[in-house]
């Protein structure tokens, strides 16, 4: 058996998703669009398109929602990278009115803009951490671990919780963030 789902199998697998599967996909899209120049619906549609046209291939061993989540992650990351490389395009005369050759502006963010972006991102991160400042130490350690990139099992060992308690605490963190920023992660 081919280890990769065929196009027909993929379509069938997606169409067979339960209501919760579709809702889950939407939530993941919203999450990956946080602080990115993307809309959740566009991200979802692009992930579907790449799955269907074969640009991304789904191994049989990977769940369909996880596969689409990985596709969205990749597309969203690329969108962020290419935004910096492809500034807005517009037509300009090659020779200016004064007869001098057109000198294109430098579209990269200047030091001041970079500092502003860095401060805004740092402020956002602090606001997320502050949501748990008055909470139990476990939630604080967990969100700090997530931010530092400590992965699931390692983090679970660090906070010494069983799987159920760990999942429950992680859900509490996610839901508190959802409720604190219903319109997106904006400081």
């Amino acid at each position: 058996m081919n280890p990769i789902l065929s196009r027909e199998e993929l379509e069938e697998a997606i169409r067979s998703l339960p209501v919760a599967g579709w809702v889950r996909l939407r939530k993941i899209a919203v999450m990956f669009c946080q602080r990115r120049p993307l809309e959740a619906d566009d991200l979802l549609q692009e992930a579907f398109a790449r799955a269907i046209d074969g640009s991304r291939r789904c191994p049989r061993t990977v769940g369909i929602v996880k596969f689409l989540a990985e596709a969205m992650h990749s597309i969203a990351s690329d969108a962020m990278k290419t935004r910096g490389r492809h500034p807005e395009l517009r037509a300009v005369p090659l020779i200016a009115d004064d007869g001098l050759a057109f000198d294109p502006p430098d579209c990269r963010p200047n030091a001041e803009q970079e500092l502003g972006d860095a401060q805004e991102t740092a402020h956002m991160k602090q606001r997320l951490l502050d949501l748990f400042a008055d909470d139990d130490a476990v939630a604080q350690v967990m969100i700090e671990g997530m931010i530092e990139g400590t992965d699931g099992e390692e983090l679970r060992a660090l906070v010494d919780l069983d799987r159920t308690a760990f999942a429950s605490k992680r859900r509490l963190i996610r839901r508190r963030i959802d409720k604190a920023f219903p319109n997106g992660w904006k400081p």
């Binding site: 946080q34 969100i143 999942a167």
Partner: peptide, 19 residues
């Protein structure tokens, strides 16, 4: 700072997948 937030997003997506 962005990378830190990206890691947090990935962890939260893991939770959405596991719920």
């Amino acid at each position: 700072e962005r990378a830190a937030l990206e890691r947090l997003k990935s962890a939260l997506v893991e939770d959405i997948l596991a719920a």
